[in-house]
Each structure stands twice: as structure tokens, then as C-alpha cells.
């Protein structure tokens, strides 16, 4: 990368990290005790009461989620400095459908991606000769298997749920891309996109060479950026989670999103699609839903619908795709999510 005039030395940066880690561990360890002290001693609420439980959840989950998010984003952003969209595109342009879809789905997890980049990336992939179906696999996997959500699931619920989430997300991306590729819908791209695909490129940026200190800087910058941006979503998610935790009877959630009802999965997807939240903001809600007897498959479907099929991204993609293509895209992905929901409700 171009040199940054304000770069402090490597040792100083390492020193900060060595200080930050024990502080993190300390805060994480005392969090539970502190939250109970605030709710039951300081505020004098009764343990096991509706309000007491909701408030304790609020004071426990807020620092917990923020602490976990900081660590997860740091690690994820650091890993992401090794993967660039350019590199992914070059490696995908030589692949055929099938294997290409598999690679695209897996790359989709780790590639740094923001939905406002969806259009340039889409065009760039197609122009480099990446097949439309393979590009779709990437576009499905990138938001659906969100790297931060994956890290948070791992940290909060263990590796099994994280693996189920990643595995099914990759499977949905792989299959939807394969199906969409077979449908041969290239002519449903907007006219200007087809022109842009044939227009010459005026030269592009070579991959930046990044030093290790610069990678750490980028990871710290990522933490500031992402945690700074998503904390309102997290607070909103925790407020909803606290409400569910304290006031919604377990039987109600079990009856709505439990595994015994055929409608619970489509219902979860229908509720999830128009909701726009951030991958981190949804975690406290997932936490509370699972705690209240919602089935894992339904909850997973709900989470994937919220973060994988977002209205803003669909609107952005509408700029490059004609309505029929975008409807097929959303339909295929939604169907995949519903199938995954049923599958996990059935086997777990």
C-alpha cells in the first residue's frame, strides 16, 4: 500500500495489542457479575421477575456483544487484508461452472464486501469472464455467510452452530448460482451493463503490497469503522432481545417458530426479508429466540433472510438486472433458505 506518513513503529503497535488483550479478557470475565450487580443490587430489581430478567439481559448482553464484536472484527479484518476482490476475480475467471460455483461460494465468505460495491464487482467479474452463475454464487454467499456473523455465532453458540450456518450458506450459494447459471438469463441484464461489458477498460489498480504493521492498522481501522457503525443496530437488537427474554412467554415463541408447525420456516423468512439489520445486531435476537424455544432451523432461516436477502441490496442490484432476473434471484435464494430451515427442523 502507499506509505502512510503517520505510521508509528511496529513495536509500539505490538505493545498496544499486548495491553488490549488482557483488558479484553478481564472485561469479558467480570461482565456477568457486573450485570447482575447493576440489575439486582444497584437498581434493586427482583431476580426472576420480568423486568429484572430483561434488565439483567440488557446489561449483560450489551458489553458481551460489543466485546465479542471487537475481537471478531479485528481478526476478520486482519484475515481479509490477504484477500482482495481482484485476486478472487482472477482466480474465478479461469473456473468452469460447478467447481467455479464452489470456489465462488467459499470466497464469498472471506472477501471484504459491502453492498454498495455489489454493482462494480458484478460487472468486473462478468467482464473478466467469470460466468453469470458463478458470479451469482459469489453474490449470494458474500452477504449471506457474513464473516462477522460467523465469528459471532462461533463465539456465542459454539462451533457446531457456526459450522451449520457456514455450511448451509455455502450450499445455498452454490446451488442457487448453479441453477441461475443454467437458466441462461444473460439477456435479462440491463442494456447499459451489456454495453459496459464490451467497452474497453482504461487500466486498473494492481494489487497493493501490504506490510504486516499496515495489516494490523487496517484491522484496527476496521474495528473503529464497523463497531462505530453497527452499535445502534446492536442496541436495537439487544432491546428486542431483552424484551423477548423478559416478557414473551416461551410457549408463544415455540408455537410460532417451533419445529412442529409447517408454517414456522416460511413465516421466519417472510418476517426476515423486509427487516434490515446488521449481522451483529441480529445476534442478541437469535440468542433470545433460541432461549425461548424457537427451533434452530426456523431461527437460522430467519437470520439468513435478514442478513442475506436485504431490501437495500436488492434495490442496488436492480440497477444491473431486469425485474425478471432479480425476481428469479430473490426467489431461488429464498427457496434455498426455506429448505435449509426445514432440513434443520427435521434433523435436530
Amino acid at each position: 500500500m502507499p506509505e502512510n506518513p503517520t505510521q508509528p513503529g511496529f513495536l509500539r503497535r505490538g505493545g498496544w495489542l499486548l495491553l488490549a488483550l488482557p483488558l479484553w479478557v478481564f472485561l469479558y470475565t467480570v461482565n456477568h457479575a457486573v450485570s447482575e450487580w447493576i440489575a439486582f443490587r444497584l437498581l434493586g430489581l427482583t431476580p426472576k421477575s420480568h423486568l429484572g430478567d430483561a434488565v439483567a439481559f440488557l446489561f449483560y448482553d450489551t458489553p458481551k456483544v460489543l466485546l465479542l464484536l471487537t475481537l471478531v472484527v479485528f481478526i476478520v479484518t486482519f484475515i481479509q487484508t490477504f484477500v482482495s476482490p481482484t485476486r478472487v476475480r482472477d482466480s474465478l475467471s479461469k473456473r468452469r461452472p460447478g467447481l467455479g460455483n464452489a470456489f465462488a461460494s467459499i470466497f464469498g465468505i472471506v472477501t471484504p464486501f459491502c453492498s454498495c460495491s455489489a454493482v462494480p464487482l458484478f460487472i468486473g467479474f462478468l467482464r473478466a469472464g467469470v460466468p453469470l452463475g458463478v458470479t451469482f454464487s459469489f453474490l449470494v454467499a458474500a452477504p449471506m455467510v457474513n464473516e462477522v456473523a460467523l465469528g459471532m455465532l462461533f463465539a456465542m453458540f459454539g462451533w457446531k452452530i457456526a459450522a451449520i450456518y457456514a455450511g448451509t450458506g455455502v450450499a445455498i450459494a452454490f446451488t442457487s448460482g448453479l441453477v441461475l447459471g443454467q437458466l441462461r438469463m444473460e439477456h435479462y441484464l440491463e442494456g447499459w451493463v451489456q454495453d459496459a461489458l464490451n467497452a474497453p477498460v482504461l487500466g486498473e489498480l494492481e494489487d497493493e503490497q501490504i506490510t504486516l504493521p499496515a495489516r494490523i492498522d487496517l484491522a484496527v481501522q476496521g474495528v473503529k469503522e464497523i463497531v462505530g457503525k453497527v452499535w445502534p443496530y446492536i442496541l436495537a437488537g439487544i432491546a428486542v432481545g431483552a424484551f423477548i427474554h423478559g416478557y414473551v412467554p416461551a410457549t408463544f415463541m415455540a408455537s410460532l417458530l417451533g419445529k412442529s408447525h409447517w408454517y414456522s420456516v416460511p413465516l421466519a423468512v417472510l418476517i426476515g426479508v423486509p427487516l434490515y439489520s446488521n449481522a451483529a445486531g441480529i445476534m442478541p435476537i437469535v440468542d433470545a429466540l433460541l432461549g425461548k424455544g424457537a427451533a434452530l432451523g426456523s431461527t437460522l432461516a430467519f437470520m439468513m433472510a435478514v442478513i442475506g436477502l436485504s431490501l437495500p441490496e436488492t434495490i442496488i442490484l436492480r440497477k444491473v438486472m431486469r425485474p425478471r432476473l432479480i425476481a428469479t434471484f430473490v426467489g431461488v435464494v429464498a427457496l434455498g433458505i426455506v429448505l435449509v430451515g426445514y432440513l434443520f427442523n427435521a434433523i435436530l
Binding site: C114, I123, G124, A199, L202, G203, E204
Partner: peptide
């Protein structure tokens, strides 16, 4: 403009 970005070979924004 997305078409302008495309013609400059930009894959991810901001650039």
C-alpha cells in the same frame, strides 16, 4: 455513475 466505474476497472468502492 456505475458505467464510468466499470470502464475504469473498479471492482470495489470507494476508490
Amino acid at each position: 455513475d456505475y458505467a464510468a466505474m466499470a470502464s475504469r476497472g473498479i471492482l470495489s468502492t470507494p476508490a
